[in-house]
Nucleic acid binder design. Structure first.
Lengths: 191, 191
DNA sequence: TAATAAAACTAACAATTGTTAGTTTACAAT
DNA sequence: ATTGTAAACTAACAATTGTTAGTTTTATTA
């Protein structure tokens, strides 16, 4: 089941289209047209529209899962762990914004095993992040404010970065990393 | 063009369905079934599927626009203005989470005049919030870190609150308000 | 050159889509 | 009781959907 060049092209282009209008609103004919071929020709390379969605989402979800597991099981300070989570999101956003958009918006159109698998990964991911935050509070590294709010404030920002981060802007990855970390750790108010 | 009770029912139910699967993946037959009627019967009350989307999105978008304008033109401190923006989002999220989800995810399926109108409102909304932030930096109320990052960190969190805020939880609106304000203004790090 | 494989094509399918036309039912007002 | 209206219904439409079958083109290899 290796992924050929042409198959990768389909996935890449499909992800772009899915990002703009969502999985359901993009037809196989749309994808084909964007590649200057006919819809039926796509089936020489892929099994179904659903398979495209799976290939776009699952790989990225697994990457999030794996790196998050490393971070959680490391011996780093909580502040360092948080910085590493931020870095993970920035990294994937810069490398694959379209697929990330698809993961965020279209995961519910997965079916059967893949849907289950995805939801399990996402649930664990959130649980791991929650664990980091509560570990931080316990260790005295973080303030003791409502943890759910902290968890989802940070996650919301990281998850939707693909919407507002512009590669061409003056903002490089390192500055982005530092600014986000500063905003959440030290806040934006002066003094 | 007044909105009858039955029409409002359609909009409410449609918004619930759109929240789960997105506008494109929900059929008129889905909406009808959820109301225990047939799809054709919906057309006694609404003009088209598109009209449902418009009614869900535009009203809320206008509310955001209007209140944001009030805030921006007020004489409040910048910190107060930010708190009022947070309050605005909490208020609408608690009152109408489904419609808010729809606004966030399905606005691109608006067409023609309404699409233009929506994009204009959203652009102005973001510009107004950006103005508040830069005013804060200028007045020395806010740190001088990258303003785009600050703007979208806060907006991302507020915009996706409907995903994680659970009405039934212990968290009331006031606590939510205070926690979000604290997270962003003072940060989560201790000391 | 002939043969093979990969990847495009045309044509069509069965199902589903939003929507319309025309009809029947339910019920309030005359 | 009769009328009028709101809101449901059945039946069907034209267009679009994902997908399949079978064929032709293109490119590589023997």
């Amino acid at each position: 089941m290796k992924i050929t060049d042409r198959k990768l092209e389909i996935i890449t282009i499909a992800a772009q289209l899915f990002k703009e209008k969502g999985y359901s609103a993009v037809t196989m004919r749309d994808i084909a047209q964007a590649m200057n071929i006919k819809a039926a020709s796509l089936y020489n390379h892929i099994k179904s529209k659903q398979e495209i969605l799976v290939l776009i989402i699952i790989e990225i979800a697994e990457e999030f899962t794996n790196v998050m597991n490393e971070i959680v099981n490391s011996n780093d300070l909580v502040l360092t762990k948080i910085e590493r989570v931020i870095q993970l999101h920035i990294d994937i956003t810069l490398r694959n914004a379209d697929a990330l958009a698809c993961l965020n918006n279209d995961w519910m159109h997965l079916t059967d095993d893949e849907l289950q698998y995805f939801v399990k990964m996402r649930t664990e991911y959130e649980a791991n992040f929650r664990k980091i935050i509560s570990e931080g509070v316990l260790a005295g590294e973080l303030k003791n404010c409502n943890q759910e709010v902290v968890v989802f404030s940070i996650l919301s920002t990281l998850r939707t970065m693909y919407l507002w981060y512009n590669k061409t802007k003056d903002l490089d990855a390192q500055t982005l990393q530092n600014t986000i970390a500063t905003v959440f750790l030290k806040g934006v108010a002066n003094k």
